[in-house]
Write a protein that binds this DNA or RNA. Structure first.
Lengths: 220, 220
DNA sequence: TAGATTGTTAATCGATTAACAATC
DNA sequence: TAGATTGTTAATCGATTAACAATC
């Protein structure tokens, strides 16, 4: 029951391993060594082996790793193996864009979209009708909602996050440019696009002075 | 000319400082100590002082920091003080959503949107007509383009990135779920939404076993 | 068996935190 | 001046890399 605590640095590298392994499968590669993978991914072989060994031994000495097996195992670790239901709060441009996005290969399904603007009521995105936020409570109580995606204006983000917490939602994917104030029981993953753009701006201005490659992986 | 190299860990915290300082200004706070700010932001005062001192001494002993001054200085460090021009390649849902986003307070202006789909030709987003990708070369040559935002399908991302590099574009904000292959002269900032969602999924599955708070800041 | 490559321990490196003298 | 708080150095902590024995 009490699993070992894995550092966030390791967790955030897993999706990238998963992606590269997926591409290897597409190219019908059956096995790969940490050394070969490290060259493709531009990381060290040591790091790959260390990362994986946090979760168990997936390889075989003298052989390397079976690509399909490793891919499946990482998928399980990330919890992609059974579907999770998502609702989107905020049906503006970004909310609608995300509703149209295909997250099924990450194991997520959008089951509801909400907004406060009555002009959007009834409008359908990918076959899902936009509902008014006052229907949120009823909806959450009658459906299994695993994750709420927040694409509302900054000023509405915190009140809605509190409401979601109250309704028992335990994971929020937050696109509002603010830090939410919720209890530690609620997982929050922030996607701050403006901050991402600011770091790009920094690199642009200080080009040539960077220690590391400009190519910044993940959301860092 | 040769500035000191600043670690990426520091750079990625700057936008968050900037945001908190902006909110303090809104609340008419004139001065703040590293200690007070550290409590608000849930980081250590030491870290704040260390981070800032990479760029110079912005505070005053016994007083703390002048909020407006520090805000402006961080803005300059991030390069937000004069406007940069952005084009968006890929006018799908996400591309259009980003075109509608107001990045002016981050110092960016969208001056062009491109797509390969002829059905989108001439359609305007925020007053900017969508152009066909074959007009890209002409446009880049006759305009000053600082950053290209890539919101194209995965399979098109790499060829277009190469094309952009060829045209002399030196910064790419990449939303396609792939790593681009460009020379080190090109700054690439990746926003991999699916990977972000995967790490949220991980936290959701392993809740209660995390060492750190669920509330993951930045894009990490 | 010999060669290859993992799993894992030890060494290194970098980032964060603590401490405190400098100074407003 | 006395109190507060910075700037900065030193100590700690964690993450990455190197090395190698185990083993397929």
């Amino acid at each position: 029951m009490s699993e070992r605590v894995i550092s966030p640095a390791v967790i955030k590298r897993l999706p990238r391993y998963y992606r590269y392994l997926g591409e290897l499968i597409e190219n019908e590669v059956v096995r790969i060594s940490s050394k070969e993978l490290s060259i493709k991914m531009k990381v060290t072989a040591s790091q790959i082996r260390q990362d994986l060994n946090n979760f168990g031994g997936f390889g075989q000495q003298g052989y390397g790793y079976n690509v399909q097996y490793l891919y499946d195992e990482i998928g399980k670790i990330l919890g992609l193996d059974n579907q999770q239901n998502m609702i989107i709060i905020g049906a503006g441009n970004l909310g609608q864009a995300l509703a149209n996005y295909d997250f099924s290969r990450v194991g997520f399904k959008v089951i509801g979209i909400f907004d406060a603007n009555p002009r959007l009521e009834g409008l359908a995105v990918r076959g899902i009708e936009i509902q008014m936020v006052d229907e949120l409570e009823e909806f959450v109580k009658s459906h299994s909602v695993d994750v709420a995606t927040l694409t509302v204006p900054k000023k509405n983000a915190r009140p809605i996050a509190s409401k979601l917490e109250e309704l028992g939602i335990r994971a929020i994917w937050n696109f509002a440019p603010t830090d939410l104030k919720v209890s530690d029981d609620v997982c929050v993953k922030n996607v701050h696009l403006d901050e991402s753009l600011m770091t790009l701006s920094y690199n642009l201005r200080h080009r040539g002075n960077e220690k590391y490659s400009y190519n910044s992986y993940m959301n860092d």
